[in-house]
């Protein structure tokens, strides 16, 4: 891989997670949905954070803009945007970051609109709240109409519409257009395709490519859908029960020789119309409760390759000399995991 090894300074990352830990609750009853996660995202990257429900991926995304739902809080490590730790920003600076640097499309984006105002009016409000971005209101409106065309909607119709007049797929696309309105450097999308049908998924995927191509925006996609990851991302971070278990280029994640057994099993569990799409295998057991974690690797109880040490000691996230990190005793001991 062309990317330098971790630890070597590179062209300033746009977003850095450094040993980030988020805790919910106190004392004995506390759980850590994000537990010591580190990785970086560079300008223009298309990165996907993948995992099943409860793996901490949405909490990780919320930490970027300091919007972790209460009673969650960052208890270790930090998130930095453009080299600036989010925790050191004051309110105004945070507002500025949220407007100009990082935009977020939440999982419930379809319910993100005010039902009694037209889309156009809501966009006016955004433009008024951030007066410095465009030369005039009219210019901002024009830019929004351009973005609506980019997400393949009819601007004249959408700006006059109320949320209830748009379908789920259309609302998701309007939410994306609103997110990139102020030209952020990064847009974070939490499960943007999950509630959509195949056709609307395809439209959203091609829109994300279009946004990346024409506006040069970096994309961080949070999803459980590996097919969408394969379609959109160039880099992938895989989380399991709060831990980063694998990080690497999309080709290494899907085709590499050195793969985390969880990732291999997850890919092998998707029924598809491709060849071999019927020889799928579910992963036995279920994601552990964060409150009752056994010692050792968190995937070990479900892992078909687990050996004694996996149940005793948590594996470290190790590179193979390149940029591909895997947290697995078996893989890092030199054994290959091609399909589990």
């Amino acid at each position: 891989m062309s990317a330098p090894a971790p630890g070597i300074a590179r062209a300033s990352p746009l977003l850095t997670f450094r040993e980030l830990t988020v805790t919910f609750g106190h004392g004995e009853r506390s759980v850590r949905p994000v537990d010591g996660v580190s990785f970086e995202l560079e300008p223009g990257d298309r990165l996907a954070v993948v995992g099943e429900s409860g793996c901490g991926k949405s909490t990780l995304a919320a930490a970027i803009l300091d919007v972790i739902p209460s009673p969650g809080r960052v208890t270790g490590g930090e998130v930095s945007i453009d080299g600036q730790p989010v925790s050191t920003l004051d309110r105004d600076e945070l507002e500025h970051v949220r407007a100009a640097t990082v935009a977020m499309v939440f999982q419930s984006a379809m319910n993100a609109f005010n039902p009694v105002l037209t889309i156009g009016t809501q966009v006016e409000h955004i433009l008024r709240a951030h007066p410095g971005v465009f030369a005039s209101q009219a210019e901002g409106r024009k830019h929004f109409e351009y973005l609506l065309e980019l997400v393949r909607l009819d601007p004249a119709r959408v700006v006059r519409s109320y949320e209830s007049e748009l379908s789920g797929g259309m609302k998701q696309r309007v939410a994306i257009a609103v997110a990139v309105l102020l030209s952020p450097k990064l847009v974070v999308l939490d499960e943007p395709t999950t509630a959509l049908d195949v056709w609307n998924q395809r439209v959203v995927i091609s829109i994300l490519h279009e946004l990346h191509r024409t506006l040069g925006i970096a994309i961080m996609l949070v999803t459980h859908d590996l097919a969408v990851v394969a379609e959109v991302a160039t880099k992938v971070a895989v989380m399991y029960a709060g831990r980063l278990v694998e990080y690497g280029g999309v080709d290494e994640i899907f085709h590499g020789q050195r793969r985390h057994p969880y990732v291999a099993a997850l890919i092998g569990a998707i029924p598809s119309v491709l060849k071999g799409g019927l020889t799928v295998r579910p992963i036995p057991g279920q994601v552990p409760s964060l409150a009752e974690l056994a010692p050792g690797c968190r995937f070990a109880p479900r892992c078909q390759r687990a050996v004694t040490i996996c149940h005793q000691q948590e594996p470290a996230l190790l590179a193979d000399g390149g940029d591909h990190l895997v947290a697995c005793h078996v893989v890092n001991a030199g054994e290959l995991v091609t399909g589990v």
């Binding site: 395809r202 091609s206 899907f254 491709l274």
Partner: peptide, 22 residues
Amino acid sequence: LLLESIPIPDPTLARREHGSVD
């Protein structure tokens, strides 16, 4: 069209397919 639209869990195929239904 539906078949062509399905996201494929394989980045190599996904890249080759892109644009056919765009």
